[in-house]
């Protein structure tokens, strides 16, 4: 644990993402102004005490919008990670535990899903059900499934060759029990690190989908949607685009730093270096 606090980029990454997550959570109960409140009379205000980041072309408070938008981005990305890990990890474990035809099927399925970027899946879903935040979650979640399946399979394959898996098999444990009792705990660190990285990619993908109009719809908001509203005014009021853009950049960089730091801290190869004193 002490090693975690000696890792500056992990601290920085966790602190910055934690700060944005906190802002997002606060927006659930309080924002400086309601985000749907349109007041043309106070549009394009410069940052002031009343409006910390100014107001947009419809007179909405930009600080409130960014807070609520961050919440949407985090929720969409987190649910997408949940979908991806929830389906991908069991698929990857099954591929590693059974091998043979199951493995072949999982790998071909993930190849197939990999061939469709999140945008294509989102367009497909939008054509069928119309644009919404839920569709963005589904599209990014489906995109996450093969990522987690591959990470889980790769990690599990290297654990599977160890004798304790053979010992468990000899004791009479079935494939599912081996996968969940012996393989999953040993690859949990890999999954957590991948989850952090997919979270940042998910936020980026959500911003992208909302920007092209396939994600979150007004009056709800997201960072991508704020950016989209501001793009036509970029030359006149650049700060309207800069604020949500910078927010996205900071969140993504922070999550990547946290993911890299986490990997360094809980890498299985580094794990045995400290605190392995043999006690009689």
């Amino acid at each position: 644990m002490r090693r975690a606090f000696r890792h500056p980029s992990l601290i920085l990454g966790l602190a910055a993402s934690g700060l944005f997550a906190l802002l997002a959570l606060v927006s659930l109960v309080w924002t400086p102004y309601p985000i749907a409140e349109i007041d043309i009379g106070r549009r394009f205000l410069a940052p002031s005490l009343a409006h910390w980041l100014g107001t947009d072309n419809l007179g909405r408070d930009l600080a409130s919008l960014v807070m609520a938008g961050t919440l949407t981005s985090f929720v969409v990305a987190a649910l997408a990670v949940t979908i991806g890990a929830g389906l991908g990890v069991p698929l990857g474990l099954a591929a590693a535990a059974w091998g043979g035809a199951v493995e072949w099927a999982v790998l071909r399925l993930s190849d197939f899903v990999f061939a469709f970027p999140a945008v294509i899946v989102a367009i497909l879903i939008t054509t069928l059900f119309g644009p919404s935040a839920v569709n963005a979650i589904l599209a990014i979640g489906i995109f996450n499934i093969p990522v987690f399946a591959r990470v889980a399979r790769g990690g599990a394959l290297s654990i599977k060759t160890l004798d304790f898996v053979a010992a468990a098999r000899l004791a009479g444990l079935g494939n599912w029990a081996i996968a969940f009792r012996h393989l999953l705990p040993n690859i949990a660190s890999l999954i957590i690190v991948q989850g952090t990285i997919q979270l940042s990619l998910g936020i980026l993908a959500e911003a992208g989908l909302s920007y092209i109009g396939l994600g979150t719809q007004p009056p709800a908001t997201s960072l991508g949607l704020i950016l989209r509203d501001a793009q036509s005014l970029f030359l006149l009021h650049p700060s309207l685009s800069l604020v949500p853009g910078l927010a996205i950049v900071i969140i993504v960089v922070a999550l990547n730093l946290a993911g890299d730091g986490l990997r360094d801290v809980i890498d299985p190869r580094l794990k045995h270096q400290g605190g392995t004193g043999v006690t009689p």
Binding site: L162, D163, F164, A166, R169, L170, A171, G172, P185
Partner: peptide
């Protein structure tokens, strides 16, 4: 495989060469 799993646990016990890898490090 399933019948074998039942049988070998009951009739055969095995001790492996390298006890570090033969025990789950997280359990």
């Amino acid at each position: 495989e399933r019948a074998m799993a039942r049988l070998r646990g009951k009739r055969i016990g095995m001790v492996f060469q390298e006890p570090m890898t033969a025990l789950n490090p997280l359990m």
